[in-house]
Design a protein around this nucleic acid. Sequence first.
DNA 1: ACCTGTCAAGTCTGG
DNA 2: CCAGACTTGACAGGT
Length: 335
Amino acid sequence: MKVRFGYVAMSTSEVMKGVSPSKTMTMKSFQKIADRPAAIRKLEHIAAENLHNTLRLLKHNTYNDIKVYRLTSKLIPLATHQDLADWDPFAVLQSAFREVGDYANTHGMRLSFHPDHFTVLSTPRPEVLKSSVRDLSYHMRMLDAMGLNARAKNNIHVGGSYGDKQAAGERFVDAVTSLPESYKQRLTFENDDKTFTAVETLELCERLAIPMVLDIHHHWVNNDGERPDELWSRVLDTWRTPYAQADSPSDDPLPPKIHASSPKGASDPRSHADGVEAGPLLEFLRRIASYTDAVDVMIEAKLKDGALFGLMDELKRYEEDGVKVLDGATVEITP
DNA sequence: ACCTGTCAAGTCTGG
DNA sequence: CCAGACTTGACAGGT
């Protein structure tokens, strides 16, 4: 089983110091600028800088064999803010977006977004649902502007339970069903650390034919008593749907993706540690290796790419033990 | 140069 | 019913 590792948004490497893809401006300082067109030009300048830095990060990834990367949602500052609803930055940023997408396509990279927890399709509040869909459409537009196909996904959580998880789940199903087909081709659902467990999320994925991103750390702190590998064959099936494999040729299917991180400590098991422990992750990977061709692992750790490098170093110690290091960010695991 | 409070958004808990 | 926690990187304003 081929395993590719990736990381989230920014690099902590010394050489990438100051290369932030998520520079921003607060609403307060935006409003302080009397000349509104000038203030908007400033926002657009920051966004262009963020895209340029994203491209630099992708090049850093190439240098380190990293093919899996999550884009930050904060590429365009204040993009979804109500007070800027009349602003459309996409025309002016078109070539910058394209440059990022072209580079990713040329180098066979798997990019994704993870709209944050303000996107809640399970909400009972119509205005919240509306802004959630607006947030999703913002992410759709960015992916389109980059020229990425439906292999680039938007990963979301199910959302809150509002005292009745069953009803929340049904609202989630209705909301997703109402989305345009192009949105569904780009969605994945992830189990969260306090509300929707892996089993509950998996059931929603199966009903909606949307692929599931299994977060094994979230599962560790929020589960129904089963091991993560016991769910894996069903998770695998969610990656075999037309939505999951939209734009993927049959000889190059999109591999399933999981999230991996380690708890910071016994007192706050939900927080992310600096790095990722190889042991528990490897145990899971070994258990699924016999019936899985390939899997991509998104590392969510404080040290970002530094955690990836640390994990690869640790995995080298298992080379006599079924782990073959193929390059700087890829291993082959035999069960 | 460095520190602290704040931030666009939503849910949940505790008072 | 409202304030605060949750979470994250980065701003903003202070020393």
